[in-house]
Computed example of a mutant assay.
Amino acid sequence: MTAYKLVIFDFDGTLADSAPWFISTLGGLALKHGFKQVSRQEIDMLRGKPSREIVRYLGIRFWQMPVIAQDLRRQSAQVAGEIPLFAGVPRLLRDVKGAGARIAIVSSNGEETVRRVLGTSAGMVDHYVCGASLFGKAAKFRALRRTLRLHPREVLSVGDEGRDVDAARKAGFTSVGVTWGYATEAALRVAGPAHTVHKVEELAALVGGTE
């Protein structure tokens, strides 16, 4: 059995390999919403930057962010059937459940989109906390923990960006940074997760307490 009663996963870049689609969509979003178009080299550079610096570099104004996020969710819903999971994710979710933990997905993406990408694995998720939030991911984390009446030490949070690590820290959760997502490993380490993993298979061992 695991020491964690709940494992929270970010979705895009953590369970779903959506970065190629996002990169292909970025130019159109830039034209539509009037922020800076970037080259592939610039995208690679931005992967090593915190979210606030990325937004500043792209020239996105604060008031634009909800509109851009809504547009991105809409477009993501249209191609949900084409976005793959990372290899090993269905087995990972089965292993987490087998270790005795509940699973939650906390994402700014829409729940219907998340379920479609997960496919037959969607039923293994106990709690979906999806969509936009005025108060950020940490507020979603805290609300979910209170609803489930868990101690922060009983929750493990898994994500691929510094903001995921920051949200976990604010909520008092143990954080895991995965290196196969949007942010570079160096950027993740600056954020300071409790654990950094390089393979999907490592996560199941971590949850099960075998590492």
Rank of each mutant, 00 (worst) to 15 (best):
M1S: 08
M1Q: 10
K5C: 13
I8F: 12
T14C: 06
A16H: 00
L29H: 02
L31N: 11
G34D: 02
F35V: 09
K36F: 15
S39N: 13
S39H: 12
R40H: 10
M45L: 00
L46A: 05
L46Q: 04
R47D: 13
R47P: 03
G48C: 06
K49E: 14
K49V: 08
R52F: 15
L58A: 12
R61T: 12
R61P: 09
F62C: 08
M65D: 01
I68S: 04
A69V: 04
A69M: 14
D71K: 04
R73Q: 15
Q78D: 14
V79A: 09
V79T: 08
G81N: 15
E82W: 06
I83C: 01
I83M: 05
P84Q: 14
V89K: 00
L92W: 00
A99C: 08
S107L: 11
S108M: 09
E111C: 04
R116F: 07
L118V: 07
T120A: 07
S121T: 06
S121G: 11
A122W: 04
M124L: 15
M124Y: 05
V125I: 13
V125W: 15
Y128P: 06
S133W: 02
F135C: 03
K140P: 01
R145G: 02
T147C: 07
R149S: 06
H151M: 14
H151A: 13
R153C: 14
S157L: 03
E161S: 08
R169M: 05
K170V: 05
G177S: 02
A183Q: 15
R189F: 15
R189A: 02
V190H: 12
V190N: 06
V197S: 02
A204I: 06
V207R: 00
